[in-house]
Design a protein around this nucleic acid. Structure first.
Lengths: 111, 111
DNA sequence: TCGACAGTTCGGGATTATGGAACTATCTTC
DNA sequence: GAAGATAGTTCCATAATCCCGAACTGTCGA
């Protein structure tokens, strides 16, 4: 269950976080990650019709911005939204964004 | 006082707005625009040490995303934050972002 | 009419995004 | 073990975007 490198809580900055959230695919991935903790890359991206190498890039951008953490679990990577770090460092930021994203998304499932 | 083209309120979408806000320079410009309504490009960017052609691109990105409106006034462009449209279309989005940007900014002036 | 001024547009070099193909690492089955 | 399947990553070439100096447009003041 080795964790992949990620920025420490104190070193998170606003601009990369907003950039990570400024892509519709990544926004949807973050929404799903919040609703399905400890899920994996492929499961969270199910039915999204995005090439797998592109998805891998999206996950990396999310991880490097500090939005998610990934741990290696066998041949899977478990994705976890860094909700605590984010609400500590950027209180009141994520909830409205994900709420608006859900409202905009055609397939918004209840959380 | 001819207005420059901008997206209608109903056609604003979340991703371009977040993208427009995902750059430190643009974030600072938006903060200043909110604090100084009806000001102009050069005045708002005063002391920012960003080339003028780059600033012009930043303003265009902000305008096309729907964050600001620009009206031609003589040889100036008056910048106005589209606060009403944004709070109507994305309630609760802008305030936390600008609050966090102000907290992160070294030269955050009180609003 | 002649600058001076506020901003935009153009062009090209640098950076970043996209995605198919090949690769790595792990698990399963024999 | 070896062979194959599975989950993601890395590589790399193309495409798209960003950055910014230089040239340009439009407007104001003398």
């Amino acid at each position: 269950m080795r964790p992949l490198p990620q920025p420490a809580r104190e070193s998170l900055t606003l601009a990369p976080v907003l950039h990570a959230l400024s892509d519709p695919v990544r926004l949807e991935l973050v929404r799903r990650a919040r609703g399905n903790p400890e899920s994996t890359c492929a499961v969270l991206a199910d039915g999204m019709d995005v090439p797998i190498s592109t998805l891998s890039n999206h996950w990396r951008i999310l991880r490097e911005a500090g939005l998610i953490s990934m741990t290696v679990d066998g041949r899977h990577r478990r994705i976890r939204l860094r909700a605590d770090d984010l609400s500590d460092r950027f209180p009141g930021l994520l909830d409205p964004i994900l709420r608006l994203a859900a409202a905009e998304s055609p397939n918004s499932e209840p959380l």
